[in-house]
Amino acid sequence: MVIVLDKVNVIFKQKGRKMHAVKEASITVGKGEIFGIVGPSGAGKSTLVRVINLLQPPASGQVMVGGQDITRFKGAALRNVRLKIGMIFQHFNLISGATVYNNIAFALKANNYPKEKIRARVLELLKQVNLSDKAQVYPANLSGGQKQRVAIARALANDPEILLCDEATSALDLENTEEIIRILRRINRDNPITIVFITHEMDVARKLFDRIAVMAEGEIVEVGDTYQIFTEPQHPLTQSLVSRVLNIEVPEHLELKGQEEMLKITYTGERAYEPLISKVSKEFDVLVDILHGKIEYIQGKPLGILLIKLSGEAAEIARARDYISGQVFKIERISAAKEGGELNG
């Protein structure tokens, strides 16, 4: 189902003080898309995602789900919409006094699922998240990753067309985060469910999202294809978020002499594999030192970053630089950082 948020505003009134949590936010999420919203904590990401199922009613603006304006929905109509929107949370939010089985059965009961079919459906869902042996266990006896998988099974119980994920991996360790990402990808592949995923973890963003919206102080400052966001971040906040994944440190105590120049090269796509460096040192009268380098994969596509030092005649360096510019995605001249600090963007 397509989700359209149009000029959504959310205002909290607390003790006479107004807090404008979401400002004029507009997004369109396509059917079957994995759409991510990233940004620092307090940016209003969670508030925005909760607007989609009206856990947080907006002060103004429009919420369209599957072509239907649900902004003013209440009671049974709202509950019917929510049956089609699953949601998982950072802290899992399972019923602690109910077994794994009953936690999942709850969602089915909410949908008046035929009683005699509940058992089979719960077991099928447990199988999907690989927890068939945990049906009669209480959540307290599960690991974080297992709890989130139960929460996913609960969220998928009624075959929703939308899955909202509110910092769903933020309380998990790396291994469990990977597992949840794998499961979500599989779910998205098997039946085209629309996923909206909130996170501050850019590592999750690059592995999972098709498109990304960046939020800061209640506003959406940038929206784009994931690869594009990582390779060509426009907004300063996006640049700083991205740089944390692609960060490259200038070696400490590095001082450039007169005949030297430091370059940061970003290369994308197929060109990532080209033996650029050996070509440069062969064809130009310069010495090429590789100071630092790495390749990150974003949606399976390589993005390489290389920090190199060229030494030689100024004119030759310039020629080499021109040649490199023609070959790579982006080239930046970097000055030696005083304290060997981090380089951004």
Binding site: N80, V81, I85, F89, L94, S96, K109, A110, A155
Partner: peptide
Amino acid sequence: VDKGVLEAAIATGAGLGLILRKVLFVE
């Protein structure tokens, strides 16, 4: 009772009666 658990129950689309019986009272 943990507000998040209640919120998750509300998000499933469950009616008030079910939430009271199966979540609020249980928790």
